[in-house]
Computed example of a mutant assay.
Amino acid sequence: MAEYWYNTETGEVEEGRRSDWSKVMGPYPSREGAQHAIEQAKARTQAWDREDEERR
């Protein structure tokens, strides 16, 4: 089964990890999932920030 990685340096999706681990996010089970990696990461970070604020 193919794995997809989002390259944070180029903004491209890679099928199979071809780039250095420090430049990729993943693996994702689909190309579409990898394409939305940054949005997912931002949403999670915002949710964690809200949780931190609520605990204060």
Rank of each mutant, 00 (worst) to 15 (best):
Gly26Cys: 00
Gln40Leu: 10
Val24Cys: 04
Arg55Ile: 13
Tyr6Thr: 06
Arg55Gly: 09
Tyr28Ser: 11
Arg31Asp: 04
Ala34Ser: 13
Tyr6Arg: 11
Thr45Arg: 05
Asp52Ser: 09
Arg55His: 05
Gln40Ala: 00
Gln40Phe: 03
Asn7Ile: 12
Ala47Pro: 12
Arg18Leu: 01
Tyr4Glu: 01
Glu32Gly: 11
Glu9Thr: 10
Pro27Met: 11
Arg31Cys: 00
Lys23Trp: 07
Thr45Met: 13
Gly16Asp: 08
Trp21Gln: 14
Ser19Glu: 09
Gly16Asn: 01
Tyr6Met: 05
Gly26Asn: 07
Gln35Leu: 13
Asp52Pro: 08
Thr8Leu: 15
Gln35Gly: 08
Ile38Met: 00
Ser22Gln: 15
Val13Ile: 02
Arg17Asn: 15
Ala41Cys: 13
Thr45Val: 03
Glu12Leu: 05
Trp21Val: 10
Met25Cys: 08
Glu39His: 04
Ala47Ile: 05
Lys42Ile: 12
Ala37Ile: 05
Pro27Thr: 04
Ala41Leu: 13
Gln40Trp: 12
Glu54Ala: 14
Gly16Leu: 13
Val24Gly: 00
Asp52Trp: 06
Val24Gln: 07
Gly16Tyr: 10
Glu14Ser: 04
Tyr4His: 01
Glu14Lys: 03
Glu3Thr: 04
Ser19Arg: 09
Ala41Thr: 08
Tyr4Ala: 02
Trp5Thr: 00
Pro27His: 05
His36Ser: 13
Arg17Phe: 04
Lys42Gly: 10
Asp49Gln: 14
Gly16Lys: 00
Glu12Phe: 08
Ser19Gly: 14
Met1His: 10
Met25Gln: 04
Gly11Tyr: 01
Glu39Asp: 14
Tyr28Phe: 15
Asp49Ala: 14
Thr10Lys: 00
Gly16Trp: 10
Trp21Lys: 12
Tyr28Ala: 13
Tyr4Phe: 08
Met1Ile: 04
Tyr28Glu: 07
Arg18Met: 13
Asp52Arg: 03
Glu53Asp: 09
Glu3Asn: 06
Gln46Asp: 15
Ile38Cys: 01
Gly11Asp: 02
Ser22Ile: 14
Asp49Pro: 03
Glu3Val: 08
Tyr4Met: 07
Gln40Arg: 07
Trp48Ala: 15
Glu15Lys: 09
Glu32Leu: 02
Glu54Ile: 08
Arg56Trp: 05
Trp21Ile: 15
Arg31Leu: 08
Arg17Tyr: 13
Arg44Val: 07
Glu9Arg: 01
Gly11His: 06
Ala34Asp: 06
Lys23Gly: 05
Gln40Pro: 06
Ser19Lys: 05
Glu54Gly: 00
Asn7Glu: 13
Ser19Pro: 08
Gln35Phe: 01
Arg44Asp: 10
Ala37Phe: 03
Gln35Met: 02
Glu51Gly: 15
Gln40Val: 11
Tyr6Asn: 11
Pro27Tyr: 10
Gly33Glu: 05
His36Leu: 06
Glu15Asn: 01
Asp49Ser: 12
Glu15Ser: 06
Ser19Thr: 13
Thr10Ile: 11
Trp48Cys: 15
Arg17Lys: 15
Gln46Phe: 15
Arg56Lys: 09
Glu12Tyr: 09
Ala41Gln: 15
Glu32Ser: 09
Glu32Cys: 02
Lys23Ala: 03
Glu51Asp: 15
Glu3Gln: 07
Glu12Trp: 06
Gly26Pro: 00
Ala43Met: 01
Gly11Lys: 12
Thr8His: 07
Gly33Lys: 02
Met25Tyr: 10
